[in-house]
């Protein structure tokens, strides 16, 4: 495989990026660019849309079409783009706060409508850009800037939520599992309808420091140890499940997407 193909999608002249050393956003961007290159997607027919937050800066470093939406509303804008220009392959790259807090309703309804968007959620379990506050996806009882003695609220599993809402493809992986991440982003890009790829990412500046996980190396090892394949996870007893998270493919189906529904209703 030629190794330089991915560079046509990455704005190498704008690097180095603004992210902290070891941040997972760069790894996810590289996996996405490699997936684009392997599928030979033309940059003029590819859209990368971002929300607000650390992950929202990914759009600054790409060479395909890019769109920077308002906080949480990116999926609503891209729904409009997809209805007008259905030939464009749209990828929405959101953060966990962006997608699951302020943009939760847009997320659920995009999945329900089954809009043809690949949604990549980079989940670092907190709001990194504003100082490490907890998000709805931060696990129960973790330390963040706004929960100094442990987060009191339960968290939500957006993969299961997207599955219930009607998404065609749902996958969860982590920044540690890089090859798996690239392969499944590629698989999601080949699907019609709403695809969700949740990528659990390290935040060495806030999450790892507050929760005494340690530096970036320790947090990647933490991801390696804690995230186990979904088949293995389902066979565990409930008491054991509390200490682990699952990764793997939850949903893969071929329901008609919003564009097909719209065409049909017009006759």
């Amino acid at each position: 495989m030629p190794s330089d193909d991915y560079k046509q999608y990455v704005a190498m002249d704008r690097l180095p990026s603004i992210w902290c050393p070891g941040c997972g956003n760069g790894v996810a961007l590289k996996a996405l660019a490699l997936a684009f290159a392997e599928l030979e997607m033309p940059p003029d027919k590819t859209l990368l849309a971002n929300g607000i937050g650390c992950s929202g800066r990914v759009g600054d470093y790409v060479r395909c079409h890019r769109f920077h939406g308002t906080h949480g509303r990116t999926l609503a804008f891209v729904t409009g783009i997809k209805l007008v220009r259905p030939e464009i392959k749209a990828v929405c790259l959101l953060g966990d706060g962006d997608c699951s807090a302020i943009g939760m309703s847009h997320f659920v309804h995009s999945a329900r409508r089954n809009v043809d968007i690949v949604t990549i959620v980079i989940n670092n379990y907190n709001y990194g850009m504003t100082g490490g506050q907890f998000s709805p996806l931060s696990p129960y009882n973790v330390i963040t800037s706004t929960s100094r003695s442990g987060k009191a609220e339960p968290d939500i599993d957006i993969c299961k939520l997207a599955d219930l809402a009607g998404a065609n493809y749902v996958f969860r992986t982590t920044i540690y599992h890089v090859v798996e991440m690239k392969n499944y982003i590629k698989e999601a890009l080949g699907k019609k309808g709403f695809s969700l790829v949740e990528i659990v990412s390290p935040c060495p500046t806030y999450y790892a420091r507050y929760n005494k996980i340690g530096n970036i190396i320790k947090q990647l090892e933490w991801l390696k140890d804690k995230f186990i394949p979904i088949e293995e996870y389902n066979q565990m007893k409930d008491a054991e499940k509390e200490n682990f998270f699952w990764r793997g493919r939850l949903t893969n189906r071929d329901l008609p997407d919003l564009y097909q529904h719209t065409r049909r209703s017009r006759g």
Binding site: L15, G26, V27, A31
Partner: peptide, 8 residues
């Protein structure tokens, strides 16, 4: 190492 490097 190439795949895991966050900074290209």
């Amino acid at each position: 190492c190439f795949l895991r490097c966050p900074d290209f």
